[in-house]
Write a protein that binds this DNA or RNA. Sequence first.
DNA 1: CCTTCTCATCGTATAATTGCAATAACAAAT
DNA 2: ATTTGTTATTGCAATTATACGATGAGAAGG
Lengths: 112, 112
Amino acid sequence: MARNKSNEFADELQQMANWAKALGHPARIAILQTLAEKGTCICGDVVATLPLAQPTVSQHLRELKDAGLIQGEIEGSKSCYCIDQEQVKAMFAAFTSLKESLHLERTLNNCC
Amino acid sequence: MARNKSNEFADELQQMANWAKALGHPARIAILQTLAEKGTCICGDVVATLPLAQPTVSQHLRELKDAGLIQGEIEGSKSCYCIDQEQVKAMFAAFTSLKESLHLERTLNNCC
DNA sequence: CCTTCTCATCGTATAATTGCAATAACAAAT
DNA sequence: ATTTGTTATTGCAATTATACGATGAGAAGG
């Protein structure tokens, strides 16, 4: 039981859901904002900005990386991260596309 | 261990993360699209559009309702749902605001 | 070489999510 | 009143997410 049925849906839906899931924790949104603010890549400075322990932050970073929203490289003894601008742009484009497909502002709420 | 630290973050971040989490499953995005397409409210017709059993769909509907993205009323023996346009608009506005705060298109990827 | 600093990974514990069968609740129809 | 149709809820199993201490891997500095 409870086997995942997510792959029964269209690829576009899965992609959008994956991106949304990556944004589904405040720490990960905060990480994106920090990376954007600091511009160039950071490593454990991210830890300093969050109320979370270093392994937890590392885990969130990996999830953002798995979702394709950030890039990470090893730079000497440190580890640099930055936003993957193309992917983030693609994500927001998908959200905009979703918004338009929902045809809001058509009328007022017409429930029942 | 593992007690939730989400409330350590700013309310705005939590709100955004909650909305994103609600979009974090393809079935729930599909439900929003169905509700938007059918315009007026539906009930178990949603079930017919998804590869999921009725209780599972009911659960996803409740999560969308808890996130504030849809409204639901009991109409006789049926149950009507519709998009909460104001909330959905607010969600997309928050996403747009996030996008702008990330200052994309500033340069190319400048990782390390 | 040894220490230190930085970060990832492992292991573990708790909580939340996902999924459905079974059942309840309740209106509508016979 | 009994059956039927529709939806929510309950209960359960499996999976995934969240969080951190402990440990490992590797570079930098002494």
